[in-house]
Amino acid sequence: MSEPFHFRLQLTQIELLGRRAGNITELRRHLREIPDSSIYYHTHHRLRQHIIRSPEPPNDFSFWLTKALGLAKMAETFSSLPFASFRSIAEIRQAFLAPLDAFLLEENGHHPQAPAGMELHLLDGRTFLLPTGLQARTPAEFKTALAKAPIGSIQYHVFAPRLGMAPPEFDFAAWLDVQGCENIAAEIRRLDPYTMTLETLRTNIRSKVAEHVAS
């Protein structure tokens, strides 16, 4: 018998790295040097604010490129990267660096500078994991637990494992594979979780599991 799936809740402590970027050159340098957990933080923490603040959740870098540097095209590049396809922070890092390198080559020294007070402050996220007390041994139990899980738990299990920020067995789809539900696992993997609210994500995953349980 396979291991039950334990729903964990992720809490994040925000650390200040004491680094700030005022232009593209500085952003590029920091993006090369900051830890994976920092890139993960800057590209994922806004997902929780999706509903209240904005219809789409731009990452911090994209937001800053627009607001502080006025580089709308570069910002769009940063926000429209295929995040759902990435399987590591290294891939995201590389995807950010490539357009910055191209920009620095093309712009021949024209570097917009952020106005005073609008520099990008680089942060890091330290993860704390709490048990939620929810667990599932079967897809039917999984469906029930999914409805009760805190939204921070859904976020953790969907995003962190696929980018190597949590063990692979913490991934919903990976556990469903082990349960013999490869089809539904594949459907969940096909979702682009970056283009919907976390509650919509919960509903979508749940309905896919429900179809399987009912059949």
Partner: peptide
Amino acid sequence: FSAPAFARPLGIRQILI
């Protein structure tokens, strides 16, 4: 510190709260 802009180069951990 209370805000990201208050961070300074320091040899210790800096937490945002």
